[in-house]
Each structure stands twice: as C-alpha cells, then as structure tokens.
Design a protein around this nucleic acid. Sequence first.
DNA 1: TTTAAATACATAAGAATCTTATGTATTTTT
DNA 2: AAAAATACATAAGATTCTTATGTATTTAAA
Lengths: 112, 112
Amino acid sequence: MKQNSQLFKGSLSTIILKLLDENGKMYGYEITKKVKELSKGNVELTEGALYPALHKLEADGLLEVKIENIGNRNRKYYSLNKAGKKETNLKLKEVSDFIIQLQQVLNLKPTY
Amino acid sequence: MKQNSQLFKGSLSTIILKLLDENGKMYGYEITKKVKELSKGNVELTEGALYPALHKLEADGLLEVKIENIGNRNRKYYSLNKAGKKETNLKLKEVSDFIIQLQQVLNLKPTY
DNA sequence: TTTAAATACATAAGAATCTTATGTATTTTT
DNA sequence: AAAAATACATAAGATTCTTATGTATTTAAA
C-alpha cells in the first residue's frame, strides 16, 4: 500500500478476500484498480505487496486459479473456494472488532 | 499485541502517543494495563513490542523521560514534548483516515 | 514463611509483511 | 515512434511485531 502503509499492514489479505467475495473472480491488476477506485484514489496497492499476498492465499488453500488468455497475454483469475469464503467471514469479523477496539483505546468517535 | 496482531501492527506508536497525551505522563507497565483496561481485556500489549516502541519514540525526539524511584525500584515516566504533541495529532488523523478508507474498501458499515 | 504472582524494566532471535527496485512482455494511447 | 497502461513476477532490505529469555523488587497467597 502506498498511504498509511504501516496501518494497512495486516489488512491486505482481508481486502483481497473481500473483493473476491464481492466480485466472484478477479485478476491481480484488476484488484489494484478496484482498491484505488473504492478508496477514491487514496489507497494504492503496490504489486510487490499484492502478488506475494495472492500466492500466499493460494498456498493456504483459500483460492482457485484459472488462467485466461486475452490476446497474447495471460490473466490469472482468482476466486474463493469454500475454505476461502469461510476465512473471509472470519477475517471481516476480525477487522470489525479491530476497528472497534482501536476506537475504544484511542477514544475516537465512530466515523459516520 | 496479543489479539489481531497483524492488524494492530502499525498502530502501536499512535496508541502510546495518544495515551501519553491523555494522561500527561505514564510508565511502560502502566501503559500495558491502560490498554487492557480501555479494550476491556481484549487487547494485550506485550512488553517485547512496547519497550522497543517507547525507545524508538524517544530516539525520534518525541518524548521526555524522567526516572522516579519507588522504594528500590525505578520507573521510567514518559511524557510528550512539543514535537510529540504535534506528531500525536498527525497520527490520530492518519488512523481516522485509515479507518474510513478501510471501511470504504471493505464495504463495512461504520461502527456505532 | 516460602512460593507464586505481579510489578518493572530490557533485549535478542526469528517471523511476517510490506517497500522499493527490478525484470519481462504485450497492448493501447499519445 | 515513444510513452503509458496492462499484466505478471521476484528479490533485497526495512519495519514491526512475537516469542523467549533475563534481571530484580514487591505483594499476595499457600
């Protein structure tokens, strides 16, 4: 991530899982664009962070991969398998809890 | 942190700064207890994370240190200097923005 | 009263996750 | 024709944490 990198550290895998959950299947480059779009240009996911994270999620048995040929170029489409969907729900709960706890400790008002 | 460690990674220095801002002066052990209290026992700051973080903030020129003797034991009281107060405000803004952006990307409802 | 738990500091090895830099190659835009 | 965007990938290094260990005093429990 370029922007608040220290803070986003740790939430990347959750972001990837959630986007795959919402969109069915996505390829790496598409994910970087989506994150930028959703954050209105504020969050830029770097490739050096994304691809290793995708490979790790795959190695952890959470993702399915399908390579598609577009012209002479390959796209690796990722999607969630059953374990991936379960993990997504878990991670989203963890992030929600994390936000609540962080707001409690920092005495921050919830962001409306 | 014991609990959501990957997520809390990066927010520790902000937590320390904010607690010092609120409480004037605190010593390390006191900070761990305060975090536990504020999070209702959910967040446990480990000493292996805390002390290096305090030393770094001090090395960065954000903290004042005063050693006090309680019986035969030493306490290192930390407090914010001017630069520390400025940095605290900056970091708190960063965390607020981070939470908003994370909620946007993950399509989470704000936590009321 | 002696043992365990709490208080209070500290550091060091290792793990995890990211940044930065670099590389390759194709396609589209200028 | 050149530059930018698309699309993947990896590797060295930085940062920040975990886990383990160490020292020492004070308080609570057995």
